[in-house]
Design a protein around this nucleic acid. Structure first.
Lengths: 189, 189
DNA sequence: CTCTTGTCGAACACCAGTGTACGAGTTACG
DNA sequence: CGTAACTCGTACACTGGTGTTCGACAAGAG
């Protein structure tokens, strides 16, 4: 792109803003541009110099989060018994969901509807492929659409985050609970 | 209380505001007091005459919604095979969740944290009792806390509402999908 | 019929956030 | 070193909501 020639300090500031925004939005999904700028050690004006609006900043942070998440998930071994593979995938996914939970909320009310869904396409496809394989091998149920099963997984994980916040379960219990629940839910009838 | 003597038109207005608020908040969880007052055919000042703040209005609407919901759920037959009873309970609960979904969002960011949870105590207890009975009879799993199973049910239902909004499933498919999923998830290992 | 209770609209103060404008100062890059 | 790119703080305009105040007016209760 034409922006190849960015002065070094500008690049540094962009990076600082991005990481500060990730932190702030994780702490409070409604964090203001002032807070973020301050956390980045930068003037609010400078922030607007790099990101035309709060929404575009949130978008950038979210895109980055998805990208690093994808990198993590890409290293999960999805071969072997689909049930074991699912357990491994849940373990990794859960870490990410737990970590980026608040960021998701921020994205959901700062970004246009559908945008969040759009950016989730890759991780969702990964889950879908695994489920399809499990169905073909007869270890996962086929009486419900794959997309529904994916959404169940998604919602159970986010529900677990809520249970932690409510203090009804601990962070360590979450993954096994989720795994046990989903393996039951996905088993053939 | 001392408010036994409310003029007739005042009572009418309170009722009008309450139903209008329910409608508006269902359409848009962030509906303003102006919108609600207008929808109720009442001046904004009148609204503040009856409800000291937007939050207290939302609370009142939410309390009312829970109460009518409880009335519906109270008529569900929970005897017999716990799995069949659960299916019936899901059917009824789903109607309510689908209907009051947006209202819940409104409550969640207008009410102090924990308040929503607090008001959900009764419906949650009902589910919990049924699950406990099913566990005692050996048809539901006992390797996970009942409260976790309740939260799974809750989240799967709200997830279904999201899937409808995303256009991936229809309103009629939801209940059977939810039932099939939860019966699988709750079955003993 | 009277008087208390309630209603109305318009106006106001307030707040918190977003995004812009300016001008002076600073920093990297060649 | 000079210049273009960048940053800074302050200040401003704007938006959109909340909650209050006022005085005039209407309606129900006894």
């Amino acid at each position: 792109m034409a922006v190849t020639t960015r002065r070094a300090d500008a690049q540094r500031n962009i990076a600082a803003i991005l990481t500060a925004a990730a932190e702030c939005l994780t702490r409070d999904p409604a964090a203001s541009t002032s807070e973020i700028a301050k956390a980045a050690g930068v003037g609010r004006v400078t922030l607007y110099g790099h990101f035309p609006s709060r929404a575009e900043l949130v978008d950038a942070v979210f895109v980055q989060a998805i990208a690093t998440g994808e990198q993590t998930l890409g290293q999960v071994d999805l071969t072997g018994d689909p049930r074991d593979a699912l357990a491994r995938l849940i373990e990794s996914s859960w870490q990410l969901v737990d970590q980026y939970r608040a960021l998701l909320l921020a994205a959901q009310d700062a970004l246009p509807p559908g945008r969040v869904q759009e950016l989730h396409a890759d991780p969702m496809a990964r889950v879908e492929r695994l489920l399809e394989r499990g169905r073909a091998e007869g270890v996962f149920r086929t009486d419900l659409p794959t997309s529904w099963l994916v959404s169940v997984m998604h919602n159970v994980m986010h529900g677990a985050a809520g249970e932690i916040q409510a203090g009804r379960i601990t962070s360590e219990q979450a993954a096994p609970y989720i795994t046990a629940t989903l393996l039951g839910a996905f088993a053939p009838a």
